Simulated assay, not measured.
Amino acid sequence: MRICMLTSSHNIFDNRIYYKEILSLKKYYDDIYLIAPGDKDFVTEDGIKVRCFKKRRSWYDRLRPMRDMFNIAKEVNADIYHAHEPDSFQVAVKLKKRFGKKIIFDSHEYYPEAFAEHFGGLFEIAKKMIYIYEKSIAIHADYIVTVNDILVNKFKEYNNSVELITNYPVLEGEINKTYSEKPVFVYAGGLSEDRGILKTLEAIKLSKKDAKYLFIGNFRDKETEDRVMDYVANNLKEKDVEFTGRIGHKEVIEYLKKAYAGFVLLQPKNWRYVNSEPIKLFEYMMSKTAVIASDFPMMASIVEAERCGVVVNPVEPKDIAEAIDYLIDNREIAIKMGENGYRATVEKYNWEINERKLLIIYRQIEGEMVGS
């Protein structure tokens, strides 16, 4: 059986698409293609055949890339097409209508809300229109997979074949921590205001304790970088703050081995963040790192139930600073929180559980193909 993943905007080596879903399916299926934006076709070291089309020039440049994707997908002639955005799924629907292909819609973002953000004051109107469009294509899916209960319930209103496949991390084996005398606090990910970078720095200024702070990742834009660096230069001269830039996955793991606690301080202005289970939370837990997390219901319920960190109001630097100082003053509790988080990922918050569910879906669709 030939499988083809479709993505209009994600990176070829996207964590969920490539390292989780594709490599899980590769254990059982040999013939797998990925059609994605890129410069040239190639075969990965895992034997995945990558077919590329030119990236879109801006967020509204959508028609030409989709025509290119359809033409490549038609040539690939797969049995199942697995699409990761509404516009790539529109291509899958076209393949189903014309050639009878089986199709899966993988909705791992709040796409209507995200796309409507481009329309400013017309956000609510745009969101409503995109919801209508999403429903008009999603009803054609042979299966819909998605990442949380909010999205599961939304899609179940008009498609009976919906499965929860969360974005939990792939277990990488137990990490042996090496704590230094000075506690190391880490943030790993994109650096932007809506992910809490400025509030975190304001909290560091208020903290009464000595610690090292590592920020791993790229700034979203030059404006944010300038604001952050100005704040650090003017307010944190006495603090041990380091920005590493973007580094490789293995290097991130090395930093996490030394991490005392990690920040997941998404800001409430973004509805999508409030109603999410960020992968960063589980990556910290998997590395035995205590977390300081936003007090949003979905995130807080996990942190509190697993006793793996502290939840705070992410817009209040004073609350964040108090959490930093609490963890520094209570070393044994912080270490225990890290161990609790690791145990929870081994027991339930890991990709291996989802891998089994994904395979069941493919086996079911494969059985329908044989029986038809």
Rank of each mutant, 00 (worst) to 15 (best):
Y28G: 08
K208F: 05
Y133V: 04
I17W: 01
E366N: 05
P65L: 02
S276V: 12
Y179Q: 01
Y260T: 11
D61R: 10
E355H: 13
A83R: 01
D14V: 01
Y213R: 06
S161D: 12
F296I: 00
E242M: 13
K20S: 02
E157A: 13
S8K: 09
S58F: 13
Y19F: 14
E134L: 08
S276Q: 11
L266I: 11
I320G: 03
L198I: 14
Y111F: 15
S301K: 15
I22R: 06
P314A: 09
V312M: 09
K96S: 08
A203F: 02
V76N: 01
S276L: 10
K269E: 15
Y18Q: 02
Q90G: 08
K127V: 06
E254W: 01
S276F: 09
E238R: 09
N275G: 12
Q90V: 07
E254V: 03
H140Y: 15
Y168Q: 03
I139E: 12
S294T: 02
N350R: 09
D30R: 14
R62S: 01
C52L: 04
D194F: 04
L34E: 02
L191T: 02
T146R: 04
T146L: 07
E85A: 07
K101H: 00
I72Y: 01
I216S: 00
H249V: 09
T200F: 05
I328A: 10
S9N: 11
Y326M: 12
K280I: 03
L266Q: 13
D31E: 13
I139G: 10
H84F: 09
V184F: 10
R67V: 15
R363K: 15
I324A: 08
E347N: 07
A290V: 05
H118S: 08
E202H: 12
T200P: 06
F243P: 03
S372T: 03
M299E: 06
D149C: 05
S107M: 11
F89G: 00
G367M: 13
E254Y: 05
E332K: 12
L201V: 04
S287H: 09
I353V: 15
Y33N: 03
K250F: 13
I139F: 10
V228P: 03
K348M: 13
E366I: 06
K199M: 14
K208M: 10
V274T: 13
K257H: 06
G371P: 00
I17K: 02
L6A: 07
N350S: 15
I104D: 01
M129H: 09
M129P: 00
V252E: 04
E117R: 12
F13A: 08
L214K: 08
G190P: 02
A323Y: 04
